[in-house]
Each structure stands twice: as structure tokens, then as C-alpha cells.
Design a binder for these strands. Sequence first.
DNA 1: AGTTAGCACTCCAAACTAACGGGTGCTAAA
DNA 2: TTTAGCACCCGTTAGTTTGGAGTGCTAACT
Lengths: 351, 351
Amino acid sequence: MNRRDIILKLIVDHFIKTAQPVGSQTLLDEYRLDYSSATIRNEMNTLEVDGYLEKTHTSSGRVPSSKGYRYYVDNLREKGIDEEIKNRIQTVLNQKVQSADEVIKESCEILSHMTNLVSIVLGPTASEEKLVSLQIIPISDKSATAVFVTDTGYVENKTFNIGEKIKVDDVQSCVKLLNERLTGTSISELVPKMQAIKPLISDLIIGHDILYQAMLETFLRFASDRLSLYGREKLLEQPEYSKDISKLKKILSMLDSPEALRNFTGHDNAEITIRIGEDDNQYDDVSIVSAKVKVPGHKDGNIAIVGPRRMDYAKVISYIEYVVDEIEKHFEKIDDDENKKEEENKEWKKN
Amino acid sequence: MNRRDIILKLIVDHFIKTAQPVGSQTLLDEYRLDYSSATIRNEMNTLEVDGYLEKTHTSSGRVPSSKGYRYYVDNLREKGIDEEIKNRIQTVLNQKVQSADEVIKESCEILSHMTNLVSIVLGPTASEEKLVSLQIIPISDKSATAVFVTDTGYVENKTFNIGEKIKVDDVQSCVKLLNERLTGTSISELVPKMQAIKPLISDLIIGHDILYQAMLETFLRFASDRLSLYGREKLLEQPEYSKDISKLKKILSMLDSPEALRNFTGHDNAEITIRIGEDDNQYDDVSIVSAKVKVPGHKDGNIAIVGPRRMDYAKVISYIEYVVDEIEKHFEKIDDDENKKEEENKEWKKN
DNA sequence: AGTTAGCACTCCAAACTAACGGGTGCTAAA
DNA sequence: TTTAGCACCCGTTAGTTTGGAGTGCTAACT
């Protein structure tokens, strides 16, 4: 690594650690370099001219620019990973009972805990899932619960008050009808199909409008974004927000906007997408490291870590890579075992 | 209302509005009182001696003490209620489709929105609920989802990966067994009963330990606190937190602690419980107004509004009272209609 | 030619100062 | 009992000073 890179790396490292602009002397004091502060200053100057560093005012230390972070992330960051997260993740994976969703959820909690940042799980967009079952379960003489399940094991439910307007039988026959007509339908087609079925329902059932509305509502809930956040409160620990609460508002408003989050987590085919806050943007100080998670038998999902631009990219990226890798390996292995077993079964039957 | 009370009321009102200590002159300027500032000062002094007011330093305006707020809440607050919240709540209630849970949830969102505070729904403690149904729904050749429903229409689910260790049949028979043995069991007895059943399962099923674990885990999830928060982000708008982020941390940590929340919302039989932050407490600056919600056919739940001690009690209390009243009236009415209808039916059959 | 010591210069942050003003309590008169 | 008047308190704000961490430039040194 050439001298300029070393200096850039150290500046970014130091700034990530302290959240303070870094000066030439500090750098020298902290990391015994074998060239003088003047040399460092020269290098810093060219780094600034080239757009990797910025000054907060004419005579202050330097701060990495967005471009500087990018370069750091792409070329300079160290890739080690510490033992603690390994242990923790392995502990989770060793509890064999867990479904993929649960494993991912728990892993994200660990990620959030160990980075002091917010982690998010973006489920696959629901629209492609198919409804596989629709059941009605009477729970008292006054009410019944309808349970809807998709082919990924996602469950929605809706409780009906049975009574004057709606009879148990009505709900039953409605469910029967929907079951016949809707199983196998993908979530995105659910609402249009429902519209087509509407006349049938109104022929059949007394309280049809209410039932219809209720079902429709439940289907809409299906389509809503499946997104979980962990460790929101961790943000309060970040020094950038202790002064300036408005920055905190910005990042929290982003976390409240599923669209924004979907927007900034990887769409392309990359395994890992790194979004570094750009100055021109509404979310100028927000960085997002996101990774695609592929589990056999599931649609691809994403997990991501969200934090201020000054986040410990080296750590965050290596952690998230590790976590995703381990999760994928884990479930591939399970999948393989299954297949092998199945083949054995076939062999067996053949003989 | 005597003069002292008037003055105390105005001080509390003004402080709630401005979050600034209130002085005698300001009071005079803002609300044309017909006695002099000196008189006000005298009254303030006795109010302070009696413990209703506090000074932040020797010569500053007064701030209500905890006792002052209490007195205000009990005796001085105005009880009007404005039209906007009425309209909003009525809009919600008019969507007849909604179940109680949904109505409560939406009402709380409105409450949070209109008070700029956090509102919470504390479901009834789950332990009394009874399991009414346990179903297994195959969703692919590799997985199946078990769905559990309680007598209040609460649904939990757990997805199993079918395969080497677990067969569909195993899950089926396990569910069948549990269905026979566990329907009607209350949540709190679920775990002990499971333990009793354990030997049966291990006799019956190959992957029994995994299945057993999974079921157990789901039951534990049942027992976990059912609690929703709305409008967390609203807290950032409160002026007390713009300076002092540590206060914000305190209140957020409280919101993250279901135990603390349960602790500070009404246990006794009162319809409304008002907790005002006490200085000696860890949560010194947190006030909670909570109300019991009774809906026919449901266990009692609570809704509450959480905010800094300086909250607009008059508004919050009247809103929450209104909301709870309306919700209760709404569902009682539905219930009555049902009963009437049923009686009519009986009449009918008799003739 | 690249490196570095030296130096003048910049500007923020922290510390100090002064003035202001909103607040108090007390006293004495109405 | 109320209130005008007054001395006093102290936090806030604005202005000033100072110190220090930082810069860039130049000239001397490898």
C-alpha cells in the first residue's frame, strides 16, 4: 500500500473512531509514522484536491468525503473478523429448530448489538408469494378467526364477530368459495381476483359487503411491506446525534419509510451493496450496507445495517458478509442433507 | 376557584405550553389578572412552601412539582374536548368491519398523532387465554406451518422444515396429539402440560426433540407480552429532549421495557390511572396516563399515553377518556344488538 | 526531487467579562 | 390584605481574549 493510501486509511480509521476531524500531527502522534507531519500535510492536500478528503473550515483537520469513504471501502479496509460474532452466530445456528426467518431475525439482533447500529431485515416483496391455504377457525359462538397462509409460511389472520349481520355459515361458505377460487393465487393478483369473485359472494351470503371488505383488508395487509428493524435505540449512542437532534430525526424518518429503505438496499445482483450518504441527498448522512440472503426454497431477502456515514465499514461489512455466508451455508447444508436422503430413499425403493 | 388555585392552574398551563419556568410578571402579561405581580409572587411563595411549585434556581420562575401536577390533574384541569378527535374516532368506529383489536390500534394511532406523544396498547396478559385450535398446514413438500389460535382470536404460527429429521406424518400426528391434549388449556399451563406430554411424543415420533422444542418455543411466544407502541418518533418533537438527549434515552429505555410499562399502568380497578414522574425514581421525567378498556367478550386491556412529565394532562386525559368511552359504547352496542337478535330468534322458534 | 524544519497565519473552542433582564423577597405605605 | 418600590440574584447572551490544533508556504536538507 502506497503512502497516500496509508494516510487516507489512517484518517478514515481515526475519524470513524473519534468522530473528530483529523490533523497531521494527531496522525503522527497516534500511529508512529516514519515521515514528518509536513509530508503528511502535503499528502493530505493532494488527497483533498483529488476529492477524498474535506475540511470543515480553512484550518481544521480533514474529514473523509463520500468519495474518500468509497475508496476506503473498496480498497483500504481490513477484512478480519473477530471471534465474538462468530461464536454468537454459531450459537444461533446450532439451535437446529429455527426456521430461516427466525435465524435471520436473531442474527440481525446480534449484528445490531455488535455494531451499535440499526439492522433491518427486508423480506422478499410479498407480491410473488402464493396463497396456499385459507382456513376458518371458530373460537367462540360470537367470533371466528380466518387464517391465511402463503407458500413461504407467512401467516395473516382476521377475526370476525359473528352475529346479526354475519353468520358462521356465511363465513364458512365464503371461505370455502375463496379457497376454491384463490388458492395458488399470488398476492399481487389477490385483489383483482377478489373483485371478480365479488358478485358470487354477494349472491351467496347475507353480510357480503362486510365480509368482502374484511377479506380485502386482510389481503392488503399481506401485500404490505415485511420489514423489521432492530436496535433503533442504538443510534442514540452515536456521538453525531448527541449534539444535533435534527440529524437523528432524518435518519429515523428514513427508517420509518419502507420505500426509502427498499430504495437504498441493493437491487442489482451484487451480494453486497454499500450505499454511502451523498451530500446532495435528503439522506445525506445515512449509509447503508446491505446484503442479499439466499436460502433454498425461499425468495431472496435482504439484510442491511443502517447508520451515520461515519460508520465502521470494515467491521460492518465483514460482519454482514460473515453472517450472510454462514446463514446460507447452514441452510444449503440442510437442503443438501435432504436431497441426499431423498436419493437414498429412491435407491431403496428401486431395489 | 380561589386565587391560589387560579394561579397554580395558570402556571401549570403556561409551563405545559412553553416548557419555560413561569414568573409573576409573565403570568400577569399573558393572562390579564386583576391583582399585582407582588400578590402573585406571594401566592407563588406559599405554593412553593406547600410543595406545589419548584424553582430551578434562587431567582427564576416557578415550575410545577410532581405534587403540583397531581393537584392540577385532580382539581384544576379543564375537561373540554375538541371536535377533531371526535370526528377522527367516529370515522374509525364507522368502519364497521373492524374487530376490537383493530379499532383500538387505530384509535391509539390517532391519540398519538393528536397529542404528539407515544401511545401504547397493552393487551390483556396472555396467560388466561385458552388455546382453541392447533392446525397444521402443508405449504410445500419441504415445509409446513403450524397455526395456533386462542379464544381471543390471537394467532401464532411456526413453520417447520420437513425433511430428514422430521416427516410430515410426524408433524401431523404430533399436532393431532397436541390438539387432543391441549385444546382448552390456558397459555400459562401450556408449558407444564407440554412437559407432561413429552414422553408421549417421544414414543410416537422420530424427530421428537426438535418438534418438542419448536412447539415449546411457539408457546413461549404466546406468553410474551402483547404490547404495541405508536408514535415513538413524536418524542423527538418535545422541547425537553432537543437539548438533553439523555432524558430521551431514559424514556425510550422505559418504552423498551414491557415490565416497566406494565408496572406503571393501572392495576387497580380505576378506569383511569395517572402516573406522574416522581423525582426519586429512575423514570423521574416520565408520566403515563392509562385507561382500562373493556370490550364484551374480551379480557380487559389497557391503553396508555406516555410522555415527559410536562405533558398536556387536560388534553391527554380528556382524549383518552373519550376514546375509551366511545370504543366501549361501540362494542357494547354491537353486543346488545346481538343479544336482541338472539332473543328475537328464540321468540320466533317458540311460536 | 522528495522530505522536513520553521514560521506566519487561520479559526474554532473554551474561558473570561460585562451587561441585561426576568425573576425574586422584603419593606413600608395604601 | 394588597401593592408599589427597591435591592438583589443569577442565568443568558454577547463580546473579548487566549490557547491550541490545524494549515500552507518557503527554504534548507537529504
